[in-house]
């Protein structure tokens, strides 16, 4: 490999297939160095005529007509070798993102790299043992839209969540991230909403776009306030009610009854929100004689009368 300054006209960037890696860590470097009027090297592969850009697309788009320094793979370097070197270079900074694995797989397929070699490279870089079984899923992953890619990368999302998102069309992904992303969900809440909305739609026989539209409409109509945390809680509850209509009705009734009971300050009632267990759990923290007295008063007076309807509520056919 050698370093040489190349004019942008010598570099080909036409095929998006070669833009495999996200240059997040490198862009920071570019920004820092450009303040000192120094540019880091882009990485290219020498062709019969000119060079193919492999890494440094972000810089290339900025430089205009100025010459830029480039690290050059000689023409005879086999694609598997320069791909391996590039992947290693990225992994010096961080693990590969799922979208990069998908693009890497697509490029290796395009370059007709034998399956066994492709498997070995992916295994070495990610720990994934057999690429061939994953190819259909990886193909879908390519379609994850940039706004969701950015969210998933920032949140370090696992492969499984990337896969879930990739089941949606790009248009559905955009609608989902525009709506849900604005509420700043954590990764687990994002995943929960995605799964529950998808599954509620499948159960109700509605496609994702339709159920999402309906949920968003209802959300806009009923959301209590502009605060993100409350809005997100409201949305989660709404979606849960839609995904688990029977269960959520039962939970709401139980919570209503619980709210009607004035428990002593050091006492708590727990119950199983799946209703598998039909029992109440009374937890009491006793630190003083007064705690004991207030518990006795609660149990000997109206407390028992109020606990009984709670037990009824836990029965399968509650009075409602």
């Amino acid at each position: 490999m050698r370093i040489q300054r190349l004019s942008p006209q010598q570099i080909k960037t036409s095929s998006p297939l070669y833009r495999v890696f996200i240059e997040d860590f490198w862009i920071q470097n570019v920004n820092q160095k450009s303040k000192l009027a120094i540019l880091p090297e882009v990485i290219v592969h020498q062709q019969a005529q000119g060079y193919r850009l492999l890494f440094g697309f972000g810089l290339f788009e900025k430089v205009g007509t100025d010459k830029i320094p480039a690290l050059i793979f000689p023409q005879q370097t086999a694609p598997l070798n320069w791909l391996t070197e590039l992947a290693r270079f990225v992994r010096q900074h961080r693990e590969l993102y799922p979208i990069e694995v998908a693009r890497l797989s697509r490029l290796m397929n395009h370059l007709k790299i034998p399956q066994a070699d492709a498997d070995n490279l992916i295994h070495a870089m990610t720990g994934i043992k057999s690429l061939s079984g994953l190819v259909p899923q990886l193909r879908k992953l390519i379609n994850v839209v940039p706004s969701i890619q950015a969210f998933l990368i920032a949140k370090k999302a696992p492969f499984a969540l990337w896969n879930q998102v990739s089941e949606l069309t790009p248009g559905q992904q955009e609608t989902f991230i525009n709506f849900v992303g604005a509420l700043r969900p954590s990764l687990s809440v994002f995943s929960e909403l995605l799964v529950n909305i998808t599954e509620a739609g499948l159960r109700e026989g509605l496609d994702f776009a339709t159920i999402l539209r309906r949920i968003e409409k209802e959300f806009r109509r009923t959301c209590p306030g502009p605060f993100e945390v409350h809005a997100l809680t409201h949305l989660r509850q709404m979606v849960f009610r839609r995904r688990f209509p029977h269960l959520s009705r039962r939970i709401a009734r139980m919570e209503k009854r619980l709210a009607q009971i004035d428990l002593p300050a050091t006492t708590r009632i727990d119950w199983d929100p799946t209703f598998e267990r039909g029992t109440l759990h009374l937890s009491v923290e006793i630190g003083t004689v007064e705690d004991l007295v207030s518990l006795r008063n609660f149990l000997s007076s109206t407390g028992l009368q109020k606990l009984s309807p709670l037990l009824d509520e836990l029965k399968s056919e509650s009075p409602g």
């Binding site: 039962r250 598998e276 267990r277």
Partner: peptide
């Protein structure tokens, strides 16, 4: 829901 044996089941009611 996840039952007491960790298997998915319809809720008891």
């Amino acid at each position: 829901v996840r039952g007491m044996d960790q298997k998915m089941r319809y809720p008891r009611p």
